[in-house]
Design a protein around this nucleic acid. Structure first.
Lengths: 245, 245
DNA sequence: ACGCCCGCGTAACAGCCTGTAACAAACCGC
DNA sequence: GCGGTTTGTTACAGGCTGTTACGCGGGCGT
């Protein structure tokens, strides 16, 4: 296999340059584009193995571009957005993006996702469905996203409830990135209904976090991994590696 | 992320004062320098996020200084010059300046460019070396920046509050350098830089310092490490070694 | 040298935020 | 429907943080 060629689509030239440079350093070939026409031109001109597409382009909509591309082309797409609200995330999946990453993003996470998507699309023709089998490892723990299994560093299996699973997934997807309660709630409530705006729904998230802590923290009173950011929300403060299973 | 600290390099004291004052009003911390030695000193002290460098310094050449700095340091630089000829501008880019602005300049334009360059370099920095585990050692103490652990010379672990942690980090980043209350407050208030009140709140910093002292000083009444500079602020007067872990 | 004034340390307090226990409602498989 | 499990709500306690108030001590002007 040759070196993967990526196309970075962002209307901010600085951001484009920064991302392409960073990807270069990690062994990829990356070029920039800032409009639908640029993308079309790049696709027509030569090989493009993957597109990193910003959701917010000045006067165009990344999601629509993504949907259009998906209809015409077979290129893998990772959506990038400064909006971390999760209906955005789900919308991304609905239009067929292969993955999604919030900006500002953990650089290692970006690389990991790029590699993961590339590996997947190389093996099989790209499927526009999510729920690929992934295994996360963090601080000795193992989390199998497909089987919903959580294994402690000691080798014991811990059983989490559905909601606790969802919370853990949300955190694993954004290591070292503080998530507000609203963001967490949005991530958990993917249950179709569009009426968000539940602004003051009490401390359900706090309870959930507390319960998850009691299951995965050595000392739930002094959490090390799932930390609280006073006045902000919660953060998963551990390095996370994601692999295909 | 802290409040950006800028270094204004200009041989005209009035100009320096005007610029630093203006930058202060816009929420930045700005200090002046008028020679290569001043710049080196400030950089060695480790407290510079960006340099506004005048091209025409009496007997020295800003462009050359810029090129030199670029070779040794990683600090962003905006070149300032009364010459608006465009070859100057290009020369500036060739020597590695991040941006260029002509003097006399529109103040808003200055702020806009400063912010733009900072935003760019911040993202780049957060991408290139994020979350590198660092361990500080000072006077027998050990501070693990990643795990937020503080261990006394006796081997006991001391628990600090979040704000105390932030204060300690700010001090460790600037050993032997007196920090004003405003600087400390700016460093601590990472919360989206909405309002920056000068001389706003009372002695919150004093309290914080006092509380930190009570936890890390043998005799809080007679502080040895965290000393007070009357009329100025506070200093961490110990040698600090920082290691990657 | 003396006394005033300002800056600093710190105790007390209040407000906010969070953790958590206890309970109630919802859910789920049978 | 039923028992157990999961999830949300309420209420209370405790910690953290900023403010105020007061006392002290050093610097400075005279």
């Amino acid at each position: 296999m040759t070196i993967p060629r990526l196309l970075v689509v962002d209307d901010d030239a600085d951001m484009r340059g920064m991302m392409t440079e960073f990807l270069h350093k990690h062994g990829f070939i990356a070029h920039g584009a800032n409009s639908r026409e640029d993308i079309k031109a790049a696709l027509a001109a030569g090989r493009v193995d993957m597109i990193l597409l910003d959701v917010m382009l000045g006067d165009e909509n990344g999601v629509e571009i993504c949907r259009d591309l998906r209809r015409d082309e077979d290129v893998p797409i990772i959506l990038v957005s400064a909006l971390s609200a999760d209906h955005q995330r789900m919308a991304g999946y609905e239009v067929g993006a292969d993955d999604y990453i919030a900006k500002p993003f953990n650089p290692d996470l970006l690389i990991a996702r790029v590699k993961a998507v590339l590996a997947r699309t190389r093996r099989a023709a790209s499927l526009s469905h999510r729920r690929r089998t992934k295994v996360f490892r963090f601080a000795g723990w193992t989390y199998d996203a497909k089987r919903d299994e959580v294994i402690s560093p000691d080798g014991y299996q811990v059983s989490l409830s559905r909601r606790e699973h969802a919370l853990l997934q949300a955190l694993l997807a954004n290591p070292f990135i503080p998530l507000t309660r609203a963001e967490i709630a949005a991530t958990l409530d993917v249950t179709g209904e569009g009426g968000h705006e539940d602004e003051a729904s009490g401390r359900a998230i706090d309870m959930l976090v507390g319960r998850l802590r009691s299951k995965i923290e050595d000392d739930p009173k002094a959490p090390v991994m799932l930390r609280t950011e006073r006045g902000v929300g919660y953060v998963l403060a551990v390095d996370v590696t994601a692999e295909d299973a």
